[in-house]
């Protein structure tokens, strides 16, 4: 497995419409921000290559439509995912409230081998808006939710200001890589106990 020259890691970005999914991805991959992104219709992805330790990985980051009505399409797009990134807007309570739904829906549709161990990451985006004054979801509230989901790593970001975006995606890549590693072992029939789960979580050191 380690002899593979390149590893493809599939990452799915989910969250309500307008929380900044496309912007985060474009900031990370193209180092650009635009106020004029169009609402994503259907799905699309961008790729980025990066080196993690001694491994060259290709991150394939999937962008999907944010409206709930399109969730049923997920089946086609979520399969084979290595990591799921949940995004909410710290200025919009509803986008935080629906995280539960996105989390649940993803697991239902992607149907990973071990749902409890599947890596998620939470991003609270748009912290730049109004100097933080219009914020309605506190950092503590977000972290509490992450803790309730098995210590999901949490990042506060601004796609517009390019704040914390690289760090967040590096963590995402590491989580995906760890998960991929775990899955390889899983498919080889080696007992799960061989993978220290806690260490994997801690790998992000967020």
């Amino acid at each position: 497995m380690s002899l593979r020259r390149r590893t493809l890691l599939k990452v799915i970005v989910l969250g309500d419409s307008g929380v900044g999914k496309t912007s985060l991805m474009n900031q990370y991959v193209h180092k650009k921000f635009s106020q004029q992104y169009k609402a994503t219709i259907g799905a699309d992805f961008v790729t980025k290559e990066l080196q993690i330790d001694d491994r060259l990985v290709t991150l394939q980051i999937w962008d999907t439509a944010g409206q709930e009505r399109f969730q049923s399409l997920g089946v086609a797009f979520y399969r084979g995912a290595d990591c799921c990134v949940l995004v909410y807007d710290v200025n919009v309570m509803k986008s935080f409230d629906t995280l539960e739904n996105w989390h649940e829906e993803f697991l239902k549709q992607a149907n990973p081998p071990d749902p409890r161990a599947f890596p998620f990451i939470l991003l609270g985006n748009k912290i730049d808006i109004d100097g933080g004054n219009s914020r309605v979801v506190s950092e503590k509230k977000a972290k509490d939710w992450c803790a309730s989901k098995g210590n999901i790593p949490y990042f506060e970001t601004s796609a517009k200001e390019d704040y914390n975006v690289d760090a967040a995606f590096l963590c995402i890549a590491k989580a995906a890589l760890a998960n991929e590693h775990e899955q390889d072992i899983y498919f080889q029939g080696i007992p799960e106990a061989a993978v220290p789960e806690n260490e994997q979580r801690g790998g992000c050191a967020c």
Binding site: S17, G18, Q35, Q36, Y37, K38, A39, V92, K94
Partner: peptide, 17 residues
């Protein structure tokens, strides 16, 4: 409120160029 919010999010990113 939510419907209005969704529409407002989308019209500002429709053919703005």
């Amino acid at each position: 409120r939510e419907r209005k919010g969704l529409i407002e999010k989308d019209v500002v990113r429709t053919d703005r160029s």
